[in-house]
Amino acid sequence: MAPLTSGPSTPLGSVGLARRFGAWLHIDAAYGCGLLVSPRHRQRLAGIEQADSVTLDFHKSFFQPIGSSALVLREGTDFDSIRHYAEYLNPRAAAAQTPNQVDKSLQTTRRFDALKLWVGLRTIGASAIGTMFDRVIELAGEAQELIGVRAELCLEAPVQLSTVVFGFNHPTEPLPQHHANTLNDAIRQRLYERGQAMVAATTVQGRRLLKLTLLNPNTTVRDLEEILDLICQAGYELLAENFAKGRP
Rank of each mutant, 00 (worst) to 15 (best):
L12F: 10
L45F: 02
P248L: 13
Q107T: 12
Q233D: 10
A86F: 06
S81E: 14
Q107L: 11
R135I: 04
T220Y: 13
G67Q: 10
V204K: 07
L115G: 10
R19P: 06
G246V: 08
E75W: 12
G206N: 06
D52Q: 05
P174I: 03
N242A: 15
K245L: 14
A18R: 01
L215A: 09
A140C: 07
L161P: 08
Q196F: 10
D52E: 03
V204S: 05
H179K: 12
R19G: 06
P248M: 15
S105F: 03
S6E: 15
V149M: 01
H26A: 00
A30R: 01
G125E: 06
R40I: 05
L175P: 06
L17M: 10
A151I: 04
A30E: 00
L146C: 12
M1F: 10
I227K: 14
E145S: 14
D78F: 11
E226C: 03
V54M: 13
R247E: 15
L25V: 01
N100W: 05
L17N: 13
E241L: 11
S53A: 05
I66T: 13
F133A: 00
A29W: 03
S105A: 00
G47V: 10
F79P: 04
S6P: 11
L215I: 06
E87S: 11
M132H: 04
I231W: 00
E145P: 07
L212E: 03
R188F: 08
L106V: 15
V54W: 04
L17D: 10
L153Q: 08
L155N: 13
T5N: 12
R42I: 11
S69L: 15
G67N: 09
L238H: 06
M198T: 02
T5L: 14
V204I: 08
L215Y: 08
H41V: 07
R19H: 10
E193L: 08
V164D: 09
Q64A: 03
I231F: 00
G206A: 04
G22N: 06
L36D: 02
